[in-house]
Design a protein around this nucleic acid. Structure first.
Lengths: 168, 168
DNA sequence: GTTAGTGCAAACCTTTTGCAGCTCT
DNA sequence: AGAGCTGCAAAAGGTTTGCACTAAC
């Protein structure tokens, strides 16, 4: 959803569009990244040095509770904070590299299907769905293999090392 | 994975099976529920009143890092703690009712497929996948409709009330 | 002019860390 | 015997709350 969409939605509900909220909405929407509360706070301070961290938390909570943004964990790669993104029409998975932290988004028809299956199977009414996938990106697979190899080389006795090398 | 499987796996790695860890492993495996650290700590204390909360956290971290248990958020329904379950061969989604907190597990072929798609699409190596779904269970949909209706009846002026009733 | 929203300080909850002492193998 | 674990205390990290003041509508 665009900032304008969110703004409209909030106005309709009689939620006040304060200066602080405008700043935060712009940041969430523009960045295109997945920001956490602290990062958002730092960015917001550049535009309004008086803004308070608590206001950031309160705004995020409000946006989440009104269903305008989605909250992500990103496999807790960066710690236990939450990340936020404006709610998309299309569901997608977040694919995160557990070595470099890069996040990719994956869209597919699997999500709609899964939703339908669950609604049918349990008579459940789905409101939010979150799929997060952790592993190694193409780039880091190579680097990691190298790291592991070095670790082995550094630790193992000479005979084992010679055997291990044969593969290369 | 069964407790025995976990025990074997730990032994093979030279990890010590202390009294405390035995207790915790049994609890995680037996309960069949999704326990968080605090709950696990409380249950463990019934078997060993001297066990420390920190030991629970350390054990969970170890089991998670060695890939023997999975960590869940369950949509943060109960707060920001994590929940744990022994790692299953089969992937599944956790479906949680945002009103009563009941958790269902949903198995399907969609997960394997998604995994393959992501591996092919990004050249990504998937290690962990987590799908969490929030909404209302069949039972709570009814209760919630009732609640909303009552809220409207209590708030709206008489004329609006009369109009709203017509649907019933 | 009201009432929702903000800032500040302080609390809260979950999890981690440092260190001395205990225990499993 | 000695590395690996535990318990205790304390700190860290992320988020929420109470309250008096401010500003959006």
């Amino acid at each position: 959803m665009s900032v304008e969409g969110i703004r409209d939605s909030l106005k309709r509900r009689g939620v006040r569009l304060t200066r602080q909220r405008q700043i935060l909405l712009d940041l969430i929407d523009r960045s295109g990244q997945h920001l956490d509360a602290e990062r958002l706070y730092q960015l917001a301070r550049e535009k309004d040095s008086k803004i308070n961290r608590v206001t950031v938390y309160r705004t995020l909570k409000m946006l989440k509770d009104t269903g305008l943004v989605d909250e992500l964990d990103l496999m807790h790669f960066g710690g236990d904070q939450h990340y936020y993104e404006t709610r998309m029409k299309q569901e997608h998975a977040h694919v995160i590299c557990l070595r470099c932290g890069k996040v990719e988004e994956f869209y597919g028809d699997a999500f709609q299907k899964l939703r339908r299956q669950i609604e049918n199977h349990f008579g459940f009414h789905v409101l939010i769905a979150r799929t997060e996938i952790g592993g190694y990106c193409a780039h880091c697979q190579v680097l990691r293999a190298r790291e592991l190899d070095q670790a082995v080389t550094a630790t193992k006795p000479l005979e084992a090392r010679r055997v291990a090398r044969r593969k290369t």
